[in-house]
Design a protein around this nucleic acid. Structure first.
Lengths: 249, 249
DNA sequence: CGCGTGCTTGACCAATGTCAAGTATGGTGG
DNA sequence: CCACCATACTTGACATTGGTCAAGCACGCG
């Protein structure tokens, strides 16, 4: 998957100055607001990636900072024997690659054709230096990510497979609604089943089977392979919180 | 356990001004250095807790910030049906209760008799306001906690029970060595088996069985029920990283 | 229309959880 | 100081969940 043949990158907009940046989208991440952007957009270039290609690898020197403008990114960690944990998925508006150390703590790969706004790290750091109020924003961002990571620890440590899947869909739905500022029962799945499995600490077969089960319980429906319709939000929520034995139905 | 009869709190030092604070210990946390301390120690009082008692609960208003001076604290999250995930353990020098929202994201309970240095949150926030360089330190602290949480996600999502236990002991050993600035093969376990289990996403029975197995493989030894001697650091490390089938031995 | 990849489903298996004794430990009171 | 008790730990037998391995299916691309 990571070695899919690169397709023509030429037909994706690339290069300086940052043509792919949309101030409203970058603003969504909460780290920088639109005012900052007028300055920051001069710093960056655009980077395009086709599906399966890595933006950087775990252990790489963190020399760039990115903001996704289009597409989606998968963050993964590997064990020496190849077992993989997906640490999260990133969507337009999310910042990526900001780290305290000089090395990236995970690998970032595109889930499909993806556009990013890229900033040299040194210039990003300078920019933060010049705008000390951003320090607070970086802290805020780290604190939010920490809260998300802790929720995921609860999920991985104590939830059943069905509860994990329900939590996942609700989470994706919430993120997509925040992004589009619209409310829809439809959730896009830009990642494959194996990615979902590696995110939830399961296997792709288990994800498939549970999808069938949730479908049969009328909690959701597969519109296409990569789009689900959530049919019963309260039911899914109850299941996700471990509040009921929905499985007996 | 949470309802163990309170023993005499009187025989633990309490009250203002912060008599229990040890500047060197507070400095260990990396958030405040000794210089800050001369100021900050005027702000706080001391709080004592006996084993099993809660410092605060998940969802409580976060009105205080704490620094542990003695003992150990367990941080937990609960699912509605009572399943519990231990989010982490805190030791002397660790800060506790700093959060962006107004509510605590987890419950904090003492593992044994524990002393803390307590600061009203409003005064702590003021203090940070007056010392903007602390903003950076708070960010650093959050980033470290995030890295730890992500390592734990990998553990919970993809490691086997034996790998989890080995990782846990190595982790505890590293923390205790950082705290005491000494290197020792002995690791103290201030928490019970169920706490370890809930931290690692296992059951206390599995923890017990795996302890027996690691013992039999001569990777470690139980000095007492609450202290292990790590006999084979390289072996434990290999096991923790999932690098080998140590189980076949 | 055919092929490849990814998804689903089934049969079986292994790891870990559950339930239930049995045992050790450490604190308490005699 | 010892004996007892409560609690926590260990161990065993068995159940269950989810993983593994192996077809088969279907979607989407060429």
């Amino acid at each position: 998957m990571a070695s899919a043949a690169p397709r023509t990158l030429a037909d994706l907009p690339t290069g300086h100055p940052c043509g792919g940046c949309d101030a409203r989208r970058v603003a969504l991440c909460g780290v920088l607001d639109c005012t900052d952007l007028t300055t920051l957009r001069c710093l960056g270039g655009t980077q395009a990636l086709t599906g399966g290609h890595a933006l950087f690898h775990e252990g790489d020197r963190a020399s760039q900072v990115y903001n996704i403008t289009n597409g989606a990114i998968r963050l993964t960690k590997l064990l020496p024997d190849g077992r993989r944990q997906v640490m999260g998925f990133m969507f337009p508006g999310d910042f990526l690659g900001i780290t305290l150390g000089d090395e990236h703590a995970f690998t970032a790969e595109a889930l499909g054709d993806t556009l990013l706004c890229r900033f040299p790290r040194a210039r990003f750091d300078e920019f933060v230096e010049e705008h000390p109020e951003l320090e607070r924003e970086l802290y805020r961002k780290a604190a939010h990510e920490l809260a998300a990571a802790q929720a995921q620890m609860l999920l991985l440590g104590r939830k059943s497979a069905a509860e994990r899947l329900a939590s996942f869909f609700l989470d994706l739905a919430a993120r997509q609604q925040r992004l589009t500022a619209a409310t829809s029962r439809f959730v896009d799945l830009p990642m494959c089943r194996a990615d979902v499995a590696d995110y939830l600490g399961l296997t792709k077969e288990t994800v498939s089977r549970l999808l069938a089960q949730l479908k049969q319980q009328r909690l959701l429906r597969l519109e296409t392979l990569n789009q689900v319709e959530l049919l019963d939000l309260p039911g899914l929520t109850t299941l996700a919180e471990g509040g009921a034995d929905m499985l007996a139905a």
